[in-house]
Computed example of a mutant assay.
Amino acid sequence: MKDIARRAGVSESAVSFALNDRPGVSPATRDRVRRVAEQLGWQPSAAARALSGEGSATVGLVLARPARTLGVESFFLRLVSSVQEVLAERRLGLLFQVVEDVAAECEVYRRWWAEHRVDGLLVVDPRHDDPRPELLDSLGLPAVIIGGLETGPTDTAVDYAAISQLRTDDAGAMASIVDHLHQLGHRRIVHIAGLPELAHTQRRTRSLRTAAAARGLTEVSSVSTDYSDTEGAAATRAVLAWGRPPTAIVYDNDVMAVAGLAVAAERGLAVPGDLAIVAWDDSVLCRSTHPGLTALVRDTSAFGRQAAGALLALLDGGAAVHVLDERPQLAPRGSTLAEPR
């Protein structure tokens, strides 16, 4: 501040007013001070801002999943990159950490709050009876729950003063998949799902049963995995060994669907003649296989930008909101288009 004041020919208090957008200096003085500060390479200190109550200029994201599963799933890479794109426009940083479980995640939140490390949070993978929203509410940390909360079979949302919720229409998306497979003549459908404790896994599993019952289908089931290609392949081998194996399998992500396609090939099964395959999330993987994989298409980048925008709105003093994102659209490709044998 002394260096800037000396070069700009003003007092140190005028420098403080100018750099912190406070009244007390003229527009011409403010511009002169900022030009000098830029010439000197000055940047605001995040630590000093936090200690003075002005915020850390940082948003937090903690992921409680096995680290080994992250490198193979494209969804989170696209989500995080689009979030960062929005934050960069406001010169906000993204503090990211991977932990083993939700208890460890909660400890990270407490530590970040005590250290003034973040101004707000993006929270992923909501769970049934999730402890995180109440904790964040008690700490007064604004947050956006990506995926939406639920309290039970009624799927009723819970309101928190500074926590917005952004979710997708899992029930509608699953119904569109079951509709597609049913119209093709499939009557035995297996859903190879992700982690069973996640709210969206439970919604998809519940939606599968509901959609199947509405169409008179009795041979449908779900099998949980950790989202990895290894467990996806193992689950595929297991269900194909059943006495009445499925004629169609719905996978909760693209990686498991590609692994399932490989298992079908190793067993000599024709896709889609012997086995139809659907991936929940579309990606370049789904479009690069032969046959191409039928998949749910959604704009993950737009979803991430929407989540970041919702958090910025909270940080700017806006009210918490509940937002239902557009329903993913099913893109039929070669993995389902033929009639089952």
Score class of each variant (00 low, 15 high):
Met1Pro: 08
Ala5Pro: 01
Arg7Ser: 11
Val10Leu: 03
Val10Met: 07
Glu12Gln: 12
Arg22Met: 13
Pro23Arg: 01
Val25Pro: 04
Ser26Cys: 03
Pro27Arg: 06
Ala28Ser: 09
Arg35Leu: 07
Leu40Pro: 03
Pro44Glu: 06
Ala46Pro: 08
Ala48Val: 09
Ala50Leu: 05
Ser52Ala: 15
Ser52Phe: 14
Ser52Cys: 13
Glu54Pro: 11
Ala57Cys: 14
Gly60Tyr: 11
Val62Pro: 07
Ala64Asp: 03
Val72Asp: 13
Val72Ile: 15
Phe76Val: 14
Leu79Ala: 00
Leu79Ser: 02
Val83Gln: 03
Gln97Lys: 15
Val98Ala: 07
Cys106Thr: 13
Tyr109Val: 05
Arg110Ser: 04
Arg110Leu: 08
Trp113Leu: 10
Val123Met: 07
Asp125Tyr: 06
Asp129Gln: 15
Arg132Pro: 05
Pro133Ser: 04
Glu134Met: 15
Pro142Met: 12
Pro142Tyr: 06
Ala161Leu: 15
Ala162Tyr: 13
Asp169Trp: 00
Ala173Asn: 08
Ala175Thr: 05
Ile177Glu: 10
Ile177His: 08
Gly185Gln: 03
Gly185Met: 01
Ile189Thr: 09
Arg203His: 10
Ser207Gln: 01
Arg215Gln: 11
Val223Ala: 00
Asp226Arg: 05
Thr230Val: 15
Glu231Trp: 11
Pro246Cys: 00
Gly260Trp: 06
Ala262Ser: 11
Ala262Met: 10
Ala265Leu: 13
Gly268Asn: 03
Gly268Arg: 10
Gly268Ala: 04
Ala270Asn: 08
Val271Trp: 05
Ile277Pro: 02
Val278Pro: 02
Val278Ser: 03
Ala279Asp: 08
Arg287Gly: 10
Pro291Asn: 02
Arg298Lys: 04
Gln306Cys: 14
Ala310Met: 15
Leu312Tyr: 12
Leu315Ser: 03
Gly318Met: 07
Gly318Val: 07
Ala319Leu: 12
Ala320Asp: 06
Ala320Tyr: 05
Ala320Val: 03
Val321Arg: 13
Pro328Ile: 01
Ala331Val: 12
Arg333Lys: 06
Pro340Tyr: 05
